[in-house]
């Protein structure tokens, strides 16, 4: 007959965190570990701050001169109006730096270092893990690709000269938030999906970088040469296309591939959905294989 002898050990009987909120612990840990060194998060944040300050400086200097990019017939697009949609590609570059140091390594690092047993030996479900990693990475990505555009949009509001103009410009804050959310989702889910594909973090990073840079550029050129919608599979160009569309800017003839808004959103959503699926499947597979099978 089994018996537990009282050797001073007592099972923890205090309050326990609800199972549904355990993902928050993982998210918090994700943010804390990224914050610890200069290279993981702060370098990308520094780039984003430089982009943001540059955009704000251009806003201040641009004045209300007319931009050649405007495509609306009923009103004039000024240079100030183009700063935010034009700067989004630079925020994307800072976001890409973050994905190289953090997002694209998340799951692969956990597999490589054998951290899965630490999660799944506890009452952490695969969905808690996925949600926690997504939330943590999204917070980091948002600081790079969402906060900057929001600040730029607020500065743009601050430059209005009358209440009417301010009212007219108010929607840009909503547009900046929408753009920030979409970009955050893309720069979170897709690199995380890549990090779940391979069990070695440097392989995962290399594959993600190659997809983002080489495959993205290839698809963009194929879009220009063969079929325009293919260009939407270049992530930063798809985001730029959404930004242009939201801010009523036209594409530069002969230089940009004209990506329709629906196609750009569709490509972005497809990326995010596929990445979510890869992430969920890989984590569930690791979990069902058993603790230590990662």
């Amino acid at each position: 007959m089994s018996v537990i002898h009282d050797l001073g050990y007592q099972r923890y009987t205090g309050p326990r965190r609800a199972a549904g909120t355990r993902w928050r612990v993982i998210a918090r840990q994700q943010v804390a570990s990224a914050w610890q060194t200069w290279w993981r998060f702060k370098a990308a944040l520094g780039l984003a701050v430089i982009v943001m300050c540059s955009a704000c400086a251009i806003l201040l200097l641009a004045g209300d001169r007319k931009s050649s990019l405007g495509r609306a017939q009923s009103f004039v697009i000024t240079l100030q109006d183009t700063v935010l949609p034009e700067s989004i590609i630079w925020f994307c570059r800072a976001g890409f730096v973050l994905t190289l140091t953090t997002a694209a390594t998340v799951v692969a690092s956990d597999r490589q270092s054998g951290a899965f047993p630490f999660y799944f030996a506890r009452s952490v479900r695969p969905r808690d893990y996925v949600l926690g990693k997504l939330a943590g990475t999204a917070l980091l990505a948002a600081a790079i690709v969402a906060i900057g555009p929001l600040v730029v949009s607020l500065v743009r509001l601050g430059l209005t000269e009358s209440a009417d103009e301010l009212r007219g410009q108010l929607p840009i804050v909503g547009k900046a938030v929408l753009l920030g959310v979409l970009t955050t989702l893309a720069y979170t889910a897709v690199p995380l999906g890549f990090s779940a594909l391979l069990g070695n973090r440097r392989h995962a990073v290399a594959l993600w970088a190659a997809y983002y840079l080489i495959a993205g550029q290839s698809l963009y050129v194929l879009g220009r040469e063969v079929w325009a919608p293919l260009a939407a599979f270049d992530l930063p160009r798809a985001i730029q296309a959404i930004a242009y569309s939201l801010f009523d800017l036209g594409f530069r003839a002969g230089r940009d591939v004209e990506i329709p808004l629906g196609v750009a959103v569709g490509a972005l959503v497809a990326h995010i959905v596929v990445a979510f699926a890869v992430l969920a499947i890989q984590i569930r597979r690791a979990h069902t294989r058993g603790v230590g099978a990662a």
Binding site: A206, L207, A210, I214, S218, V226, W227
Partner: peptide, 17 residues
């Protein structure tokens, strides 16, 4: 990774572009 540019060149050629 090195195969990506080759695939791109092949895709361009096959698509008649």
């Amino acid at each position: 990774i090195a195969a990506l540019p080759v695939l791109f060149a092949v895709a361009i050629r096959l698509s008649g572009g």
